[in-house]
Write a protein that binds this DNA or RNA. Structure first.
Lengths: 329, 329
DNA sequence: TTGTAAGCGTTATCAC
DNA sequence: GTGATAACGCTTACAA
């Protein structure tokens, strides 16, 4: 204790150890110092319960060892797991994560960026939808799943390739009448390519492919109406469906069940994401995103000192995994 | 721009606005200042793209408007949703969350606490398992789901009541041979009371109740063996199971399915948590934790200035929700 | 190798 | 109401 009620400072440690202030600082920065001095300092620090004040340190060094991660929410399993992996990747490097949730609001996204800047974070990783997010170029920014410009690195899965993979798989499994379904932000992003890859591949292989692309604002109703319109005599017009997310795949499956249409007996479905459900494994057959590598990549790039020579778009390979909604298990 | 490459400071704003440094500070702290001055300052700040440096501010004021949240991971839906709700509750109050993941490691938990202290957070909310976590009493700490001592507030659901509720419900639904299953940390915590409440209630109502309580280290194998040992001629010895989490409930259901035992036809199951799965609603019938209120409560307490008169344990009411694994829908 | 002193960007206390 | 000036706790030349 310092006598007054507040926390001990370096000055207190120095006094208690009987050394100069600078010496204490050196000890805590791993700068060579006489062994007996180091000893005394460490003991004094321990005795006083001293810890470096990162705020004072950051003020001097301009490095805070904090990175902000901006994401809509943690309700979607993919968002939660991505957040977890990025947080762990940061921790491994001695950085901390400031978590900022936006609930898809462009205004909130912007104010999160402001907050991050004000907190002098060393970098920002953002999964955002605001089409004209205003970024200070003084803080490194890495965008997840959305391409801004060549000067802002974007990290994503190989969404196009994943779509192709889904098409190939469904066709290989005997599907001939294919359908693509998605619901998501009306702001275009990398994930849109999932459907593009799927459709391109279907066409290339000579099979018809319909698609229904909705925006979040639309809600699920249109899906139900669409399916209802494509069921005749208890049979669905399609035998293979590719959904842009596993959650959507599960919702579609549940809706079809109400019509007595069973998966994978009557129609095979492939989703996208591949996050296992705790206690019950993969929710469906799916294109698996390489979450751990995506996280590592974001962190690597955002922390990279040398900001010239940054790639502007990095796509990581996905893979297919069977999960009970296709006839291959 | 300031001429040199770095960010503008208050000094720059003052110079550019032609006012004194202190005046600028006052403007940004909402301290009364002549209107024309305020105008000039705001304009200059805008022109320069100035933002208050929270690190410098924190150094002076000893308030960082940051709270650390320590949690094992975001894989368990309950953890993810709790994290989301706490983060939102903090954002609403103008605070940011520093997220620290521990993966259940006691050492990591301790180092997260150290990190938080070093970052001079205004408070710590912790979902931890380290039985002798060392806390500085200079930083407010709120424990989730685990009681430390009367001086450290603990927030939890009414786990005991939830267990009772599950028993009552199963009995009401006709179950007579009851079973309680749990897997979790070997460090005791509030969640242990789920089973206690269940067993107490079963006994009080005069129905037999078995239970199998495992630790994470044990893995799932013992559950499978237990169930196998209690299946005779394709029939399970129990007709009602209460699982300490929804994830476990789903795992048990899947295991029973392998034996041809169907839920809820042959046995009814109630889980605990009540986090809906994106795209498919509740995973099972369950005791729902009031996540939003739990989060609000944690944040309220951790930010409360007056630290005398804090309750040492707050239990929030749970409720039952049917989700397809009981015969009441 | 050790000690000294000048800031880092704010806030807060004073005279004016 | 406004404008110097001294901290806040630390890092980092630079001098000893």
């Amino acid at each position: 204790m310092t006598g007054n009620g507040s926390l001990p400072t370096m000055k207190d440690v120095a006094r208690s150890a009987g050394v100069a202030l600078g010496t204490v600082s050196k000890v805590f920065n791993n700068i060579p110092v006489g062994d007996s001095y180091r000893q005394r300092v460490l003991e004094a620090a321990d005795r006083l319960g001293y810890q470096v004040n990162n705020y004072a340190r950051g003020l001097k060094t301009n490095r805070t060892y904090a990175v902000a991660f901006i994401v809509p929410n943690l309700e979607l399993p993919f968002f939660a797991i991505l957040t977890q992996n990025i947080c762990q990747a940061l921790e491994r490097r001695g950085y901390r994560m400031i978590l900022a949730l936006t609930d898809f609001s462009p205004d909130t996204e912007q104010s999160c960026v402001r907050m991050a800047q004000q907190n002098k974070v060393d970098g920002i990783i953002g999964l955002t939808y605001n089409p004209n997010l205003h970024l200070k170029d003084s803080i490194p920014f890495v965008s997840f799943d959305r391409y801004f410009s060549s000067s802002i690195p974007c990290v994503a899965s190989d969404n196009f390739g994943g779509g192709q993979m889904a098409a190939e798989k469904l066709i290989e499994l005997g599907c001939r009448k294919l359908l693509f379904l998605r619901i998501g932000s009306s702001v275009s992003g990398e994930t849109d390519k999932r459907g593009d890859g799927f459709e391109v591949c279907c066409r290339a292989k000579g099979f018809p492919c319909d698609s229904l692309r909705l925006f979040n604002e639309d809600g699920y109703e249109p899906f139900k109406e669409f399916l209802a319109a494509h069921i005749h005599d208890g049979k669905l017009d399609y035998d293979g469906i590719f959904c842009a997310s596993d959650g959507l795949a599960m919702a579609i499956r549940a809706n079809l069940a109400e019509w007595g249409i069973l998966v994978p007996r009557d129609v095979q479905i492939i989703g996208f994401d591949g996050i296992p459900v705790w206690g019950s494994g993969l929710p469906c057959s799916t294109i698996v995103q390489p979450v751990a590598q995506l996280a590592e990549t974001c962190v690597d790039i955002v922390l990279k000192e040398d900001r010239t020579e940054q790639p502007s778009l990095i796509c990581l390979p996905v893979c297919y995994a069977s999960g009970g909604t296709t006839r291959d298990s």
